[in-house]
Computed example of a mutant assay.
Amino acid sequence: MSNFGCSFKVEIIRDTSRLQEKLLYWQRLPFIAIDTEFVRVDTFYPLAGLIQVADDTGIYLIDPLDIDELTILKPLLIGDTIKVMHSMSEDIVLFQTIADCMPQNIFDTQIACALLGQGISLSYQKFIELYLGLEIDKGETRSDWLKRPLSDSQLEYAAKDAHYLYQAYPQLVAQLEERNLTGIVQQECHLINLGMTDTEEDMDNYYLKIRGAWKFPVAHQAILKKLSSWREREARKRNKPRGRIISDKQFLELLECMPKNVSTLQATRVFNSGQLRRYGEYVISVINNPPQVSADFKPIPRSLSGQKLDLYRSLKKSVEVIAESLNIAPELLGKKRLLEQYVALIFAKNVKQEEVALPEVFGEWRIKLLSNAFKKIVKSKFND
């Protein structure tokens, strides 16, 4: 058995029976490290190229092109064994796709590093250099992970990624335990999971994410909501990236010119010929028969200004002070999205007559650290 240039055991798993054996073993362990290689260029859903698992016996490279039923990974992914990952989001999307589940009990080493003051988005290379003193060659990162056979260089790269992740994990845990931060990593991973669910409501509300669309009238925003909701379902049905259906930029251009027929749409050159042929009539039908703007319609939030921007800056400054005192990355403690959400909540309520608690999406650990400071800031700005 070749170890592909590695100093540790490497095994490629190509059949279901062997994978089942290892899955039973991994489910009895306190932790394993998991990494994945995938391709997501011309598809909406990622295509798995390799799944790497590190345990106390070696590195196991699962070949998803040889194993038909990858839902057998589900008991491990949702079970009690801690799954160590670095920058978990893309791996989570892949496992949702191939194993039909939302993995639980994740320990994201990138989040752990942010809690330990190493910055919000520490790269894997920097992480390994920092904790193991090794320089990692990432030359195979963007190679073709769907081709077969994979080269020895690809297999060595993939195996080492999982191996080093497994090796560094105990150091991180020890540092977190020294500062009583151990449980926060999994809290934060759980919050990330909650934000990655792919519900019907999420698809219908994608329009709220389209940058710059707030400037259009609400009636135009209602059209955008219907078109973007349709695009979300079309992208999944056809397994194509959103931009290959209609891009956000094209949606904004449509709202600028509001063509009333296919000929006018063609003249705008907003769509290419394939988009015009496939989607032109539907888009025009939505523009000519716009949806009713219901009483509960959510307008797209505009960029903060005036009192809202002033409050946001005060909250952000408070976060920075608290984060510095704890040596936590301020961008993790006070995520921009969360601060903006809290500002919107403050102005949506009668803040002079009631306190506005931090919403649950902040997470228990942020609420504990930020609540008192935020209450004082809100009181000073509105109740004096």
Rank of each mutant, 00 (worst) to 15 (best):
Q341F: 13
V185I: 01
N3H: 15
Q292H: 15
Y169V: 09
G133P: 12
G58Y: 02
I287K: 03
T81I: 10
R238N: 07
L134V: 11
V321D: 07
W230P: 10
D66V: 11
S263R: 05
F297M: 02
A33E: 02
T57N: 12
N272P: 01
K336Y: 13
L176H: 06
Y207G: 09
A174H: 11
L265K: 01
L194G: 02
R277Y: 03
D80F: 00
R244G: 01
L194N: 03
K209S: 07
N289M: 12
Y342H: 06
P149K: 02
N350W: 15
Y282V: 09
L94W: 03
E21C: 13
K317G: 10
D144F: 03
N239V: 10
E256P: 14
L369Q: 02
W365E: 11
K160C: 05
K138N: 11
G334D: 00
L338W: 13
S143I: 03
V53N: 06
L132F: 10
P259R: 00
E177C: 14
I136D: 03
T268L: 02
T81S: 06
L345E: 03
S318H: 10
K225W: 14
R231S: 13
K83I: 02
M88E: 12
A213I: 14
L115T: 08
A33H: 00
I287E: 05
F31C: 08
L338S: 10
S153T: 12
D108W: 05
I245D: 01
D63V: 04
L252I: 09
L146T: 04
F362C: 12
T141P: 06
Q186W: 05
L194S: 03
L276R: 01
M102T: 05
K240G: 00
V293D: 05
F31W: 11
S294N: 12
A213G: 15
L70R: 01
D296Q: 05
V319H: 02
E232F: 10
I12W: 08
L50C: 02
M196R: 11
D55F: 05
D15Q: 11
E21N: 13
V84M: 02
V351W: 04
P259K: 00
Q110K: 06
V283G: 09
N261A: 04
S228R: 15
G243S: 14
A344C: 12
I210G: 09
E331P: 14
N239S: 08
G243D: 14
F31K: 04
K138H: 10
L194D: 00
P149T: 00
E364P: 01
Q118G: 14
K352R: 06
F362E: 07
M258W: 01
A48E: 05
L227I: 15
L370Y: 01
M1C: 11
